Amino acid sequence: MRVLVAEDHQVLARTIATGLRRQSIAVDIAASGDKAERMCLLTDYDVLVLDRDLPVMTGDEVCRKLRDLVDPPRILMLTSAGALEDKVDGLERLGADDYLTKPFDFAELVARIRALSRRVPRAPADVLRHAGLTLDRIRREVTARGRPVELTPKEFAVLQLLMEARGGAVPHDELVRSVWDENLDPRTTAVRAAISRLRGKLGASHLILADTGQGYRLCG
């Protein structure tokens, strides 16, 4: 699962992000409404945690604009505006999926985010995007910051799994099962070798991280 936290209070934003990452949730942060909108247009987030009182572009404006997307992220408004009319306005007029007022209990925030991520499974996108990478499932093409990248079928499959995870970790065993076959020795170095080649071809060794005991994930 991948979450964007749109919150201009830096300490609160970092605190939320740290807590969610401890729950194995991939998190990005936007400190203004215009940045949150741009990031949602570039990345397929599962959930957007959205403060209504953001600089440059308000959370209300962001919510209205994202509702026009074909496949928008689920939006959880996290705000100090806790009056009943504020909640009704956010859910009914603006189209938010959920509403939580500050101060809040962190366990409830996590539960609401997980609940939203389970609603209406996304149809697999034909084109995946992440940190300058674009992967076209149909054409079987990959570009890195606009530069075409030639990948073998297995390298393509590994990258696709990593991009589908939206910044979450993909276990080594899952990569073996999905990309190779059941006869491959699980202790093989094939996955590590494929990851090494991908890093080289994508021209960004830091883009694919190895999480000890977790597997591999995309960063950036």
Rank of each mutant, 00 (worst) to 15 (best):
I75V: 06
L66I: 07
L66G: 05
V56T: 15
L54P: 09
G59I: 04
D46F: 03
L54C: 11
D51I: 02
V62L: 01
M57T: 11
G59T: 06
V70H: 09
G59Y: 03
T58F: 04
D60W: 01
T79V: 10
I75C: 05
T79I: 10
Y45I: 10
E85G: 00
V70K: 13
R67A: 06
G82R: 01
I75H: 02
D53S: 13
D44I: 02
D68Q: 15
G90I: 05
T58Y: 05
G90Q: 02
L48M: 09
V70R: 13
L50V: 02
E85S: 13
L66P: 03
M77Y: 04
D89N: 14
A83M: 11
L69T: 13
I75E: 01
L41V: 03
E61Q: 15
G82C: 12
V88I: 15
R52E: 12
G59K: 08
E61S: 14
G90H: 04
T79P: 08
V56D: 15
P72C: 06
T79R: 04
Y45V: 10
C63Y: 03
A81P: 00
L50G: 08
P55A: 03
T58V: 11
L69I: 12
K87H: 08
V56K: 14
V47N: 00
R64K: 15
V62M: 05
L50F: 02
D60T: 10
I75M: 04
A83F: 01
V56A: 12
R74M: 10
D68V: 12
P73Y: 10
D86Y: 07
D44G: 09
R52P: 00
D44L: 08
D71K: 06
L54G: 08
L54F: 11
S80W: 01
T58L: 07
L41W: 03
L76D: 04
D53P: 05
V88Y: 04
A83E: 14
R74D: 08
P73V: 06
E61V: 15
Y45R: 01
T58P: 08
G59Q: 04
M57C: 04
R74C: 10
M77H: 06
E61G: 09
V47M: 08
V62H: 06
R74E: 11
D60Y: 05
T58E: 09
D51N: 14
D68G: 09
G59D: 07
E61P: 06
L84K: 07
D60K: 02
D89T: 13
L84P: 00
P55C: 07
L54A: 11
L41N: 14
L48I: 12
K65I: 10
D51L: 04
V88N: 04
V70T: 15
A81G: 00
R52G: 11
L54Y: 11
D46P: 00
V88W: 02
V49R: 06
I75D: 05
D71Y: 09
P55I: 02
V47T: 10
S80F: 03
V47F: 01
T43G: 03
L78V: 11
L54N: 10
L66C: 04
